[in-house]
Design a protein around this nucleic acid. Structure first.
Lengths: 227, 227
DNA sequence: AAACGTATAAAACAAATGTTTGAAAAGGGA
DNA sequence: TCCCTTTTCAAACATTTGTTTTATACGTTT
């Protein structure tokens, strides 16, 4: 029987880095990102992790908290990287340029999702799943992980473009997130885009994706505000 | 037993506009959009439609084909509206302006999702679900419904901005779709955006959303292309 | 070696799921 | 009215689901 039966805290046991629990979490993330939360069964995860189904309850409790933990594990490192990039910009002392703020958001995400190795490589799909599902318990985790990052980036955008009001920049930050996630969504690396464009565009080169995104979004940020 | 057992064609029976089958389809769309495909059971749908669970198999066959039909019913009318808007632009004889092309994409979508009454009001959520899940049978429907629309819009963008190459415009079209869908995703009408922005921005006014989107995206379309 | 907290395993559990069955009701011409 | 098709419904079906149980092995400490 699990040791600590804390009221809501996730870890029923301390989590290791190489043990069965780590294998379960990694398998869960991979499968969730591939097929969705409800579509993947605990038996699927157990099999993929070469573990017993019971060990999932043993380490993570209910499936819901495994999902929450999976989301945290995917989202947290990317948010760290983005905030670090923003910190670096602000620490330089030079005045903020809006295209650098955009890049601080875009670059870690694209690099992680295209060719990354950690759990954050599944960021785009996991994020879209949480947005699409919007079950309360998922919303909770999302907000806990992402709200402060959004606020910090909007602050930075407003600082870089003082002529625009904060509300406008909130809109545009969300436009940026939408474009960014959507382009990274495709599991087969631009399959849809490539098929539709008959080979004209593909998303296999991270640098090209970053460049295209930053150009487009930076120009959008500069659009004249409404009346 | 159902009349026609066609090999793959969706309608096992002719579909009516007011009968039990119509009620089932509408309930299915509403519930799917709210909670996701796998999260909604056929019993949920039957109860919401005041019908018998068996009538779902009777009219639609397996749950999978009900899902496919739901997607079609939501996506098709919006694509019609967008193509009609594009037709109107081109029929006017005047040279295409890229911001009008953007508007032809954005305006019907926002109006449908914010205050629309038909099945297409669930467009954003259903589309994100299909993108997020990417099960083969869902992919099929999506591609059947959306590929030609994407191609037409990219054509129009290239016609409006001949200095940019087609590949670039494919990228940017996808950025547009991402931003558009993402901003419309929130079920409680900008709840997340409003909470995060402390009241500064909300998505309750369709005209304001359209304006903000068109400005941002049109400016993005004009961004200088890469080297 | 003995004992103890930890980890794994197979099996069992109850609940929920998509789908089918078979019979009853409703409808609509002849 | 009779006959035939179409629709509805309650019940049953076989799986699959998340989770728990119970027992056995493991590893460390005494």
């Amino acid at each position: 029987m699990p040791k600590s039966s804390v009221l809501s805290g996730p870890p029923l046991r301390e989590r290791s880095e190489t043990g069965t629990d780590a294998r379960i979490l990694e398998s869960a993330i991979t499968l969730f990102a591939q097929r969705g939360f409800s579509e993947v069964t605990v038996r699927d995860i157990a099999e993929h992790a070469a573990a017993n189904p019971a060990s999932i309850s043993y380490y993570f409790g209910a499936k819901e908290s495994l999902i929450k933990q999976a989301i945290r594990t995917v989202v947290a490192p990317l948010n760290e990287q983005r905030l670090a990039a923003l910190d670096a910009l602000e620490a330089s002392g030079a005045p903020l340029r809006h295209e650098d703020v955009v890049r601080a958001m875009v670059e870690p995400t694209v690099r992680a999702c295209l060719g990354g190795v950690g759990p954050e490589r599944h960021y785009a799909r996991v994020l879209v799943l949480t947005f699409a599902l919007r079950q309360p318990f998922v919303d909770e985790v999302m907000s806990e992980q992402t709200d402060r990052v959004a606020a910090r980036f909007v602050d930075a955008l407003v600082a870089a473009l003082p002529d625009f009001d904060r509300a406008t920049m909130y809109w545009r930050f969300d436009f940026m997130v939408g474009a960014l996630i959507h382009i990274l969504l495709d599991p087969s690396r631009g399959y849809r885009l490539r098929r539709v464009s008959e080979g004209g565009a593909d998303t296999s080169d991270p640098a090209a994706v970053i460049d295209a995104l930053v150009r487009f979004l930076s120009a959008g940020m500069l659009a004249p505000p409404g009346p």
